[in-house]
């Protein structure tokens, strides 16, 4: 899809849809999901090995040459996130890292302050940092200043599939940070919500739960791919003029014709 190819964090991505690889009952479906999503970028997590699970390793289910975005899930502080990031990079699959610092087990909301600290440190160490954040303009500015490659505001809490609950806040980020890629991550439950985010001007979206928990994840991935492209095209085309109000009978500028112009 020519319209959706883009460069970010030093990599060429074929799609503005990035998919997560978690919550699948059977990981072997991933290659078909990625193909249907037309994406070459996925997130993965870092965990202690489970000897039994080493038979079918996640990397065997991801096409060679895919761009990996390991996340720091499990980290509750900046320090833990930095540690996980270094471990992830040591795997030798690239220098991207999604900073995810969550100390709240109920809503899984990111801790912006710790995320900023982790981003500062990791950017200094040469990572391409993609911080997952609660959309707050000041935090986003701090992340950009810290050297993040993008900001990833949540649309709604992880796994909730509730759509763009934070739409207005994301709109502010898009308006105030025109030179920063904004990737909406978390909470997108339907393809129409992904299209909505792209229409607003988001650079990309990340989707995990909505695809993994669908009855037919491969079909849902295809739906998301089309929605993301539709949204991006709509944004590029620019919405047309909508004259909503009829001009009232007592015009505000009527006085200009009543008096001689000076």
């Amino acid at each position: 899809m020519m319209t959706t190819a883009w460069e970010i964090g030093g990599q060429k991505l074929s799609s503005r849809l990035i998919v997560g690889t978690g919550k699948y009952g059977d990981q072997s479906i991933l290659p078909r999901v990625m193909a249907a999503a037309q994406t070459n970028a996925v997130t993965v997590a870092v965990r202690r090995i489970n000897p039994a699970g080493m038979q079918e390793h996640i990397l065997d289910c991801i096409p060679k040459g895919a761009v990996l975005m390991p996340n720091t899930s499990g980290a509750r502080t900046a320090e833990e996130a930095v540690r996980i990031a270094r471990l992830a990079r040591a795997a030798g699959c690239g220098d991207w890292i999604k900073v995810e610092v969550i100390a709240d087990a109920r809503y899984l909301l990111p801790d912006n302050a710790e995320t900023i600290k982790a981003t500062e440190q990791l950017a200094r160490e040469g990572f391409q940092v993609f911080p997952y954040m609660n959309p707050d303009l000041y935090a986003a500015r701090a992340l950009v200043a810290a050297g993040a490659a993008a900001v990833m505001p949540l649309g709604a809490p992880i796994g909730s599939n509730r759509g763009l609950q934070t739409k207005e806040m994301i709109r502010i980020l898009l308006g105030e940070l025109p030179d920063t890629p904004v990737i909406v991550d978390a909470g997108i439950g339907r393809p129409s919500e992904a299209a909505e985010a792209m229409e607003m001007g988001a650079a990309g979206v990340m989707v995990n739960t909505a695809i993994a928990s669908a009855n037919d994840p491969v079909l849902m991935a295809e739906a998301f791919a089309r929605a993301v492209e539709a949204g991006r095209l709509a944004y590029l085309a620019g919405a047309g003029a909508r004259r909503e109000e009829a001009v009232a009978s007592s015009p505000l500028t009527g006085f200009l014709s009543r008096e001689a112009n000076r």
Partner: peptide, 10 residues
Amino acid sequence: RLEEMARRAQ
């Protein structure tokens, strides 16, 4: 479009 501009500005 001065009238429209005025309304929007207001």
